[in-house]
Every structure is written in C-alpha cells, then in structure tokens.
Design a protein around this nucleic acid. Structure first.
Length: 340
DNA sequence: AATACGGGGTC
DNA sequence: GACCCAGTATT
C-alpha cells in the first residue's frame, strides 16, 4: 500500500516553498478567476509555460474579460494567437466565450467539459483551480511523475487517471494539481530530472531503481509527411494578396495563395493551376522556404506574380510562420536587387 | 485506438 | 534528430 498521506504532505510542503509564481495564479487557492484560468489552460495546451507566458499577458491585455473576448472579431483573436500554433484553440475559445457571455460560466466539471476546446484535462484544471472541485488533472507532467513514482513504463490514460484520482489531496485539490505539474516541469523533467531536489525521491520507484529517465517509455511519433507546394506573392511583403485558409491546417489564418504539388504532378503544373485560378501572371522565382510542423515537412517555392487582386496589410492579418518565411524572401530579393 | 493539429525548447 | 510541451477533436 502506498503512503498517500506522506506523499501529499511532502509534495505540498515543497510546493508551498518552491511552487512557481505564475500570472494566472491570482486569487484564493481553489477560487481563482475562471476567465483567467480558462485562458491560461487553453493557451498552455501542448505549449510550454515559458512560451505561454509571452502570449498570456498580451492576450489578457487585448481581451481583459470574457465579454471583451466574445465581442472581438475572430481576426483579432487569431492575431493575438499568431505564432502560438494549434489555432483551433483560439477559434474554439472565441466561440465558447460568446456562449459564456450569453449564458454565464459553467458551474462545474461536467459543464466545462461541454465547452468547445475543453477536454478532460482542462475541465479538471478549471473545476479544481477556479471552483475548488476535487478533480485530478492528467497532463504530460502528471503522466511522467506518476510513471516514475510507481515505476510504470507504459502508463495508459486510464492508469494515469486512476493513480491521479487516488492520490489527489481531498483537502487541497487545487494546490495538489498545481504541485504535481510544478514538480514535473521543474524537477521531474523528461531528460535530466533533479532527483536530488525532489521531495518524493524517497518513495519514487524509478529513482530507487536508479533509472528515473527510463519511465515512461517514449511515445511513438507519427511519421512526418513531406509536402511540396507553390505559392504566389502578389504585391509586396507589406501589402499582398492574402487568402484565408479553410479546413483544419492553419484554419482561420491568412496566407499567400498556395497549391500543393499533387502526386504525379510537376511543380510547374501546380504553379500553372494556381496562376490560372487567380488569373495571375507568374514572375520571378523568389526562392524556396522549408518549414517543419509536427507532422509535415513543407518545401514551398514562392513566385512573384501580377494580378488585379486586393492587397492586405500583412502586419494586420494573422499569418503562420510558413507565410512569414515566404514574405521574407521578398525582402531578401529587394536587398539583392539593390546590391545590399 | 490512431491520427491531425504548430511551433519552439532541450538535450 | 529525438523527444517533449498544463491536450482536444475527429475518425
């Protein structure tokens, strides 16, 4: 039988001393501002805290409360999210904010779970941190900490949730959740854990076995698909013809008109297809951009082109990193033309 | 149960 | 280059 009481006391004592001071941790323990917690939790999905911090202040300044977020145009919301990735988070957050502005905040875990973009992790986080509900979070930190604590090399979701549920401190659920995540983020890190500073090392199976990083075993990664595409820059890097991307990949963002090179098709054929669609005359090859996403490796050839199409100020639209790289080719060409 | 979904940090 | 990050939605 595991010494749950001892583990709780050790970790919470460490947390009270060494817990991180983060901008969304304002207000009483278990009674935080739901809007601020909500925004932070969405922003931090698959995003490291150090990076989330950069966006959090900016987002809260632009949209200080749920009414402001609900009333904002989607373009403004995506612009605030630009560069942070997983843009469905911003679209869902915006849509859900409009629901909250109309009907109020959900009152409990189940209510939050029904909101767009809110899954089991986020619902548990908001329910515990803002509502004081005893709900155990299950994120990457929790998974790693518990895998090591119990020496489970291949923990599945239900195993992690079960261990997290039974270990959750019923007296301080909010602090417990933050404590486990802080431990995972600062001490019990993936590659080089600082077991010498860990309050749980005395009961940690992985540490006692001398193999902390052996748990959990790495997840299998999906294969990266290689994609070739062509894009047209009509205008300049500052003022260009932009299209809003549909679908799930970069959906809602704006970018240069683009055509993927289909299987069995040449780059020239794709370029011709694209030019035809826009009624554009293709000019100089500006260069090639290479861009890696989690599941794609994109090689994009960018061409200058001429057409009677409306221009958008590129600084005002939310663009992906891929499109920023493409626009940069224009600057480099200008520098080249004028001999540096 | 798998896969799609960004972009960057760390070793 | 591998592996990961306060995960969720879709299939």
């Amino acid at each position: 039988m595991w010494p749950h009481a001892k583990i709780r006391a050790s970790l919470l004592a460490w947390f009270d001393q060494q817990g991180r001071d983060l901008p969304w941790r304002v207000g009483p323990e278990g009674g935080r501002d739901p809007y601020r917690v909500w925004v932070a939790e969405i922003l931090l999905q698959q995003t490291q805290v150090s990076r989330g911090l950069l966006y959090y202040e900016r987002f809260l300044t632009a949209f200080p409360n749920v009414q402001a977020l609900a009333a904002a145009p989607q373009g403004d919301v995506l612009k605030a999210w630009e560069g942070c990735g997983y843009y469905a988070r911003a679209r869902n957050l915006h849509a859900a904010a409009q629901q909250v502005a109309a009907s109020g905040f959900p009152a409990d875990y189940a209510g939050w779970l029904g909101m767009r973009g809110v899954g089991p992790y986020t619902a548990a986080a908001i329910a515990s941190l803002a509502l004081g509900e005893p709900r155990a979070v299950n994120d990457g930190n929790v998974r790693r900490v518990l895998a090591r604590l119990y020496g489970e090399a291949t923990p599945n979701e239900s195993w992690v949730q079960a261990r997290a549920d039974e270990l959750l401190d019923p007296q301080r659920p909010a602090a417990w959740n933050e404590a486990v995540m802080d431990l995972g983020a600062t001490i019990c890190t993936p590659k080089a854990p600082q077991c010498g500073l860990c309050p749980l090392s005395g009961t940690c199976t992985a540490f006692l076995a001398g193999q902390p990083t052996a748990y959990p075993t790495p997840k299998v990664r999906p294969k990266v698909r290689e994609v070739r595409a062509v894009a047209l820059l009509i205008g300049s890097d500052q003022q260009a013809y932009l299209e809003q991307r549909g679908g799930t990949l970069l959906g809602g963002l704006w970018g240069l008109p683009l055509a993927e090179v289909q299987g069995g098709e040449t780059k020239e054929a794709a370029l011709e297809r694209l030019a035809q669609r826009l009624g554009a005359k293709v000019g100089a090859h500006l260069g090639q951009v290479s861009h890696t996403m989690t599941h794609r490796q994109i090689a994009l050839d960018v061409y200058a082109a001429q057409a009677e199409l409306p221009r958008t100020a590129t600084a005002q639209a939310a663009l992906s990193r891929l499109d920023h790289k493409a626009l940069k080719l224009w600057q480099e060409r200008q520098a080249g033309l004028f001999g540096e």
